[in-house]
Write a protein that binds this DNA or RNA. Structure first.
Lengths: 344, 344
DNA sequence: TTGAAAGCGATACCAT
DNA sequence: ATGGTATCGCTTTCAA
């Protein structure tokens, strides 16, 4: 009593029979290809609706050699970076009828191979490789894979196509912002040296300061990405030093570090941003907006990156060859009270 | 020079030709069905490997009427709950060659319909519906859809199959833990009343306390899920009251609330857990583990939930009819310093 | 043990 | 403007 019309199980032949035409004609109507009389078209359309006809994508794929689906391989179990990216990705691709297979390959090495094999059997039109660690690729062997592939966030091989946020631009945005609000002694506290993004942001911090001829003593402070490290680093910068030696702003490599920093300053009765302004990176809403004071940050525009990945992959599938190497997408400054104060 | 053998584009006929047998025989070998001589089998297997033959899943699907893929519809752009669930889901399903289409339908209402249509055209064998708001379903019209469907996290219709964490169990775990460490005046600060999970956790808090004959004054404090609310609620509980009126523990409806709480206590010089123990909910690692002190919490075991969703859906696809209504999966207590102190 | 042939559902070419 | 038919790659009887 639930299957009026067989819901979605009707074939093109059912429609053809219902109208009294051939399957070829129905196909033409459904794809708006070839000449069909207005009358026939209307009848076919009506029957299709009536029967809840939905063309079988498998059959179509078999015939056209295009599956209208792509695979996304990621080792990001946590999703802080992946999901916003996926949101943009699926949004961009669905417009062209493309669906995205998600494969989370956080686990034994063979898991990646298994997923990849499944995707290849399903004849995905394209592949996206994205990693949790922005600098290290998920562990998959792509040897011999001829499917168009885009690397997102994590960096693919030199002859591959990679899309990633413009880390240097983001860092420059942060530092320029601090300079604009009048800060001159801008410290940098960030993640491990082995992270490519940490080095890129640090370089950009240094370059931007140098371009303005500002405070150049001291180096970037490298630790992990955590709140705890922010806290510790703040102590390094402040404790046992005269206030005249303090920075008047800190650019942090992650929002978590920024939070720890703010925390430590508060404990010491240092006003943020009055005495020291703080800006983070990632614009991890739920953290940054909830901080006290709310933490200014740099947004990597991951959804937009995802959309761009979709566009690029689509073009590759269509036969184009986008620039190899890494294409950088701009970041955005999100000012909050930790730099501009409560007044705005 | 990269396509030795045409990488993954070889057909069953290519293999058959290479060996000098029929496609039927190759098929039998590949599927371990029918009788084939050991000799032939070996030759076929070898040729298949040689040619990097990968059966075309589209053709197989067309023939078997099974696509070996399922669709996951979610409106969780943020991913805090979705991704751990997906990780478990894909892990559980890939073992059976099943891949998961991810559809993020956070956007205009028609987006859901578009995605659903794409999935139906692709003849997914099953559907998973999961929401950001645990109590409200993503906005999709499933009328007339006959594909096996499982609801995860968010609750489906009464005659549907839903899998969700056992909120009451989780809350009971938290409260029992507090009681075990000797607390007797256990407050509860949680999210909005309109959230089903908020009400369930609050009820369980009340019931567990009542069962022990403990402090029953006061009601659960409902606000939003944020750190800010935790901070405010702490003020309610503490400010202007004699210390003898203070709770000696607070069970928080989210880790964020717990963080705000800890923060407020610290500002007031109240020792956690010395004077007041705090426990959160969600076990959002990156927040809870980084808190000062690290926040005890309740883990909803989302990856396991995902695996179970996979199993259930598989059974439904196989024709079984699992119990309708909601099946609850147990939570786990994750004790940290905010309840048991630094010593352990 | 092996193979020939009929589909699965849709598309596209070529007639009509 | 329509329709017959071969075809996509694989599975599955049914014969041989």
């Amino acid at each position: 009593m639930q299957d009026q019309g067989g819901s979605g199980r009707a074939t093109i032949r059912d429609v053809a029979n219902a109208v009294g035409v051939s399957t070829a004609t129905v196909s033409k109507v459904m794809n708006a290809t070839g000449r069909v009389s207005a009358e026939t078209r209307k009848a076919v359309l009506e029957a299709a609706r009536e029967l809840d006809f939905r063309p079988n994508a498998m059959a179509r794929a078999l015939q056209s050699n295009r599956s209208s689906s792509v695979g996304l391989l990621t080792d990001d179990t946590y999703g802080r970076f992946s999901l916003p990216l996926m949101a943009g990705l699926t949004e961009g691709l669905i417009a062209q009828g493309m669906s995205v297979f998600l494969c989370v390959i956080d686990g034994p090495k063979e898991l990646g191979a298994t997923h990849l094999d499944a995707l290849l059997q399903k004849r995905v039109d394209g592949l996206i490789i994205s990693g949790r660690r922005v600098d290290r690729l998920p562990d998959i062997d792509l040897t011999g894979v001829t499917v168009p592939t885009v690397y997102a966030l994590s960096h693919g091989p030199a002859d591959g196509v990679t899309l990633a946020p413009d880390e240097r631009h983001g860092a420059a945005l942060a530092v320029s912002h601090l300079i604009e609000i009048g800060r001159r002694r801008i410290a940098h506290v960030t993640g491990p040296r082995r992270f490519r993004v940490a080095m890129e942001r640090a370089e950009s911090w240094r370059d931007t300061l140098a371009a303005e001829g500002l405070w150049k003593e001291g180096e970037a402070l490298h630790g992990d990405w955590s709140q705890g490290w922010g806290h510790t680093a703040a102590a390094h910068l402040i404790d046992g030093r005269p206030a005249s030696d303090w920075p008047d702003a800190v650019f942090c490599g992650s929002d978590q570090i920024g939070l720890g920093m703010i925390d430590a300053f508060r404990e010491r009765g240092i006003d943020v941003p009055g005495q020291i302004a703080v800006i983070g990176f990632d614009n991890w809403q739920v953290l940054a907006a909830q901080a006290r004071p709310p933490l200014s940050s740099i947004d990597m525009n991951l959804p937009e990156l995802g959309r761009e990945v979709g566009r690029t992959l689509t073009r590759m599938i269509a036969g184009e060859s986008p620039a190899t190497g890494t294409t950088r997408l701009p970041c955005t400054l999100v000012p909050r009270a930790s730099t501009i104060g409560p007044a705005g």
